[in-house]
């Protein structure tokens, strides 16, 4: 199923020039093109308004952040601790995502099994769930009195209010983004390439290493970057499952939340920092997407 939809995408990409040619040929299509001019102006007007509504808060944040003395607050110990913690936890959560998510994405992309749709829905769920819900779920599952609280305690592991819980929360909400992208990447590999590898006597593992990984690499990287951005901005699940303690569990979004109540300057400065980092992440993503489409 998935393989089919992805193949459709690539086919659509190849069909595009033909469609353009077709449109040019018939008079009807030509007239449609003329008639489209007026509605398009409306689209631009409303669309422009939408873009403006989205851009204004970001612009104001940048301006007020600079105005509040952005650079001065960066030396604030809570800001330094939070930046260090955010970077380290999000990188570790990314590694966890990569290690656990890749085999999962591969299984989902290559083989079908019973209740696969249900499995995929559950895996995708954290993407749309309010992060607070994710946090409560984590607490009820892995908290001291949670479902696995007793066995974890027997192993001497206590998750809530630890840096490990921050990583847990980040991986929980962000991994589905990577799994989804990697799954689509694997599924987009042309079946004839896999068959050709089989014919040449390649084992499943060799196919994974030498055919699937290189061809799905861009999609995986794409998913990883998105996933990292999500982990970096994680707030709701973190404050519920991991708590809020400077240097241990207080990530950058948590400092913003605290800062909003007293030190608006700190909140604005970190907001600015987060916007810049997120923009860089998205820029990297666009660059990768551009290169990918050239490759198709």
């Amino acid at each position: 199923m998935i393989r089919d939809t992805v193949r459709m995408d690539t086919i659509a990409g190849r069909l595009a020039p033909n469609q353009k040619a077709l449109r040019g040929v018939t008079d009807v299509a030509y007239h449609q093109k003329i008639h489209r001019v007026r509605p398009l102006a409306g689209f631009f007007l409303v669309g422009g308004l939408g873009a403006l509504l989205l851009a204004i808060p970001i612009g104001v944040l940048l301006w007020r952040g600079v105005d509040a003395g952005f650079a001065g607050y960066l030396a604030n110990p809570s800001v330094i601790d939070a930046a260090r913690l955010s970077i380290s936890t999000s990188v570790i959560s990314l590694l966890v995502t990569l290690l656990l998510g890749t085999p999962l994405a591969y299984v989902l992309a290559r083989w079908s099994f019973r209740h696969k749709a249900a499995v995929e829905t559950v895996i995708d769920l954290p993407i749309v769930l309010p992060p607070m819900v994710a946090g409560i779920g984590l607490l009820l599952a892995f908290g001291r009195n949670g479902l696995f609280g007793a066995p974890l305690h027997a192993l001497g592991i206590h998750l809530p209010f630890t840096t490990a819980a921050v990583i847990f929360a980040q991986a929980f909400v962000s991994a589905p983004l990577y799994i989804r992208a990697a799954r689509l990447g694997f599924a987009a590999v042309r079946p004839d390439l896999i068959e050709a590898a089989y014919t040449d006597g390649a084992t499943e593992l060799e196919i994974f290493r030498h055919v699937m990984l290189p061809l799905a690499g861009r999609s995986m990287l794409n998913g990883l970057i998105l996933s990292w951005a999500r982990a970096f901005g994680e707030f709701g699940a973190t404050i519920i499952f991991a708590g809020n303690l400077q240097g241990f569990t207080q990530t950058m979004p948590l400092v913003i939340f605290n800062g909003f109540e007293t030190n608006l300057g700190v909140a604005l400065s970190i907001s600015l920092l987060l916007i810049v980092i997120s923009a860089l992440i998205l820029l990297a993503l666009r660059t990768i997407e551009k290169n990918t489409s050239l490759n198709v």
Partner: peptide, 21 residues
């Protein structure tokens, strides 16, 4: 001994009701 600076009284009460601290 402080493991978390919670956002207010209600989260403290909820987490204690769950026995997490």
């Amino acid at each position: 001994n402080i493991v978390s600076n919670e956002a207010g009284v209600k989260p403290i009460v909820s987490k204690l009701q769950l026995g997490e601290a």
